[in-house]
């Protein structure tokens, strides 16, 4: 009996793991995530979406920088709800996470909690040096800009 059940149990477990790749983001969590005093190490919070080609360039760059300097922490936020095609687009960059996607809260409330001055353009990136400083950059990142904002060398 157990032997017959086992594959089913494994399948269910695999299914629930796949569904948990993204943590749903609400306005309270967004505010916490973007608070400079919550980041005690150099951290980049990078917003992306499945529609944004420029975001891929940033994810690729951040992925290579984390390999060069393990002190860099990269948190990803998909500015859209989780869907089947989202994880395959992100997983290829091998970023450790955590990984967020917009949850059931109002998207405008989440965006406002992330940054009241953000107009929704992507990529949008928030860079923390881990000592209370925070920078915002819209568009494609460069390694020197990330070095300057995080205080790390790559």
């Amino acid at each position: 009996m157990m032997r017959r059940l086992l594959p089913v149990v494994l399948l269910v477990a695999a299914g629930s793991l796949a569904a948990a790749e993204f943590t749903p983001l609400d306005r309270a969590e967004a505010q916490r995530l973007l608070s400079a005093d919550k980041h005690r190490q150099p951290t980049v919070v990078t917003l992306w979406s499945s529609d944004c080609g420029y975001c891929k360039a940033n994810l690729k760059l951040l992925s290579s920088l984390t390999r060069n300097n393990r002190k860099l922490r990269v948190i990803t936020v998909a500015a859209e709800p989780e869907s089947a095609h989202l994880w395959p687009m992100l997983s290829r960059y091998g970023l450790a996470g955590p990984h967020y996607a917009y949850g059931s809260d109002s998207p405008e409330a989440i965006a406002y909690a992330i940054d009241p001055n953000w107009g929704g353009e992507l990529p949008r990136t928030f860079l923390f040096d881990g000592a209370g400083r925070k920078e915002r950059i819209s568009g494609v990142l460069t390694a020197p800009a990330i070095e300057k904002a995080t205080g790390l060398r790559f």
Binding site: D51, Y54, E121, L122, P123, S138, V140
Partner: peptide, 8 residues
């Protein structure tokens, strides 16, 4: 000037 998607 931005290398990004305004989506707007």
């Amino acid at each position: 000037k931005v290398d990004g998607c305004p989506h707007h």
